[in-house]
Each structure stands twice: as C-alpha cells, then as structure tokens.
Design a protein around this nucleic acid. Structure first.
Length: 288
DNA sequence: ACCCAGGGTCGTC
DNA sequence: GACGACCCTGGG
C-alpha cells in the first residue's frame, strides 16, 4: 500500500502528549522528533504537530481523512465540553486546562476489551509490552519506512492460542481470562456487533461484565475508550479514587473510601459528562 | 536483599 | 460485602 498524508489546520483541542499519554491507549510511541507513531486497525500512522498544523501520514487502509476523522473523534466539539466542565468548580477547571488537548479515541472494541483485561493490576510499561508481543506473534506485519509494525490480532487470529501461550507472552494470571474471553466472543456468547446497536449503557455494561477478566473498572474503560463511546460511565482506579478523595471526600484513609460514594459524587457533579471529567482528572493527577 | 505498587478481578467466606 | 491471592516488572 502507498503512503498517504493528511494535514489539518486550526484544529482546537489536539495535543499529542495529552491524547496518547492519558492512559486510553497502549500502542502509540513517541519518536525522537516528538511525533507519535501507532498502529490501529490495519493502519500504521505517524502524527506530528507543527505550530497549529497537525500532519498525519502513514500506511492506511482506506481514505486517510475519513479514518483520521473517525479515530480521533474530530467531529465532536471539545471546546463546548470543556466549557461545560469548567463551570463545575475550580478543580475540574484546572484539570481541563491541564489536559486541554485530550481527545477520546474511537478504538476498536475487540482490541479495547483485550487490552484492558491485560491492564488489570498491572503497570503501563508491562501492559504495552504484553500487547506488543501479542501483536508481533499473532498479528499481521506491515512494513513502513524500513520498520516493521504489527496489527493487533483479530479474534480469529487468537482462536488457537492456548492459555500457556498467553502465559508465555508474560500475561501472568490474566492468561485464563484472555483465553476465556476470546472464546466467548468467538462463540458469540457476547456478540460485539450487537453491543454497538444497544442504546442503553447499563445493558451493554451488564453484557461486558459477563466476560472473563472484565469487572466494573475494565467495563467502564471499554465503554469510554472504544467505539462504544459512552461518557456516562466513571472508571474508578487507584488514581481516580485518590483525586476524588483529595478533592471532595477527604477521608484520611484513602482505601476506605466507598466506591458508591465516589460514583454518587461523580454523577451529581459531572452528570452525563462524567467519563470525560474522569479522564481530565486522571491525567491531571497522574502527571502532576 | 527486600518490599511495594501497578488504570482489578475472582473465588471464598 | 469484605478479604486475600494472583503474574510479573520496575523502583525505592
């Protein structure tokens, strides 16, 4: 395939570091020139920002403008969202200012499910390593500029992968979960296409929770970061627990903070934008 | 050397 | 509903 290029001018709310380091994705890496390269779908893409210009180029399966517009959520008005969130209080306002260039990517549902099962009780360097090895071993190779990249394996490509194979990739105790979930999806015990057509977030959530290795936190991440794209969820991890406690609850023993209490406050304060609020607060707290 | 924590989930009580 | 166990890696 031929390299394609697309240039975007005067795009607001688009900072590479904010988008790729806010914890929503695991396959984007910074180059020495400050640009980022990543693999998604059958695409290998490099993104760089020069002043107000954003330059996308790479090996892309389809029309680059359409693919980029969809993946980077370019049709959504983030200025309006940020304005609404900033009205809530000083803290949210600071966090929004800090991560003003965040965009929530439209990532493939299957890839997001597997990636966040791997993320459980794990750290980011290791998560990235496992996903990279998984792709190298079972995905398709794409060569670009003399470098080799690998697509994230499809569910069919993982059909014959054993529990031990997952363990050998370094997945640890998540091996069984990955195996079971892969087969539940292959057997359509959970039908990913149907999930996209279901409107009620709570029903989709219940369905995701039947997957092995998917608990409340992982389910919410899948809902927020994949093409399911729900903002009425609030993934609670150690960082969000920390920041919510510091800002609103102020319990001296952070671990004792009740999840229900966090959820209640989040819903009251952030309403239907709670997923986005979570992301700004998470990025703010974890980076600073 | 040793301990701890990391974008949690699961089985057991 | 609370509690410990779980694989593995990096950092103090």
């Amino acid at each position: 395939m031929e390299e394609q290029k697309y240039v975007l001018e005067n795009q607001d709310s688009f900072e590479l570091k904010h988008i790729f380091d806010c914890g929503q994705c695991f396959r984007w890496n910074e180059e020495t020139d400050g640009s980022y390269t990543g693999v998604f779908g059958k695409n290998v893409l490099n993104v760089q920002k020069q002043c107000k210009k954003i330059i996308f180029k790479g090996i892309v399966d389809g029309n680059i403008e359409e693919i980029v517009t969809d993946y980077f959520d370019l049709n959504r008005n983030y200025l309006e969202i940020k304005e609404q969130l900033s009205k809530i209080d000083e803290n949210v306002s600071s966090s929004v200012k800090y991560g003003e260039g965040i965009r929530i990517l439209n990532q493939d549902l299957w890839e997001t499910i597997i990636s966040f099962i791997i993320s459980a009780n794990n750290n980011i360097p290791r998560i990235k390593g496992i996903i990279e090895r998984l792709s190298e071993k079972y995905g398709q190779e794409i060569e670009w500029n003399g470098k080799k990249y690998y697509t994230f394996p499809t569910r069919q490509e993982l059909e014959n992968v054993t529990v031990q194979d997952f363990r050998n990739l370094g997945a640890g105790f998540r091996d069984v979960r990955l195996y079971e979930t892969t087969h539940m999806i292959l057997d359509k015990k959970v039908d990913l296409d149907k999930l996209h057509h279901e409107k009620d977030t709570e029903i989709v959530r219940e369905e995701l929770l039947t997957l092995s290795g998917v608990g409340p936190k992982v389910a919410d991440c899948i809902l927020l970061f994949s093409t399911l794209k729900r903002f009425d969820v609030f993934p609670i991890d150690v960082w969000v627990r920390r920041v919510m406690n510091e800002l609103y609850i102020k319990n001296p023993d952070e671990k004792k903070v009740n999840k229900k209490e966090i959820e209640k406050i989040a819903l009251e304060k952030f309403g239907s934008l709670e997923g986005l609020a979570q992301q700004y607060l998470f990025y703010w707290k974890r980076e600073a």
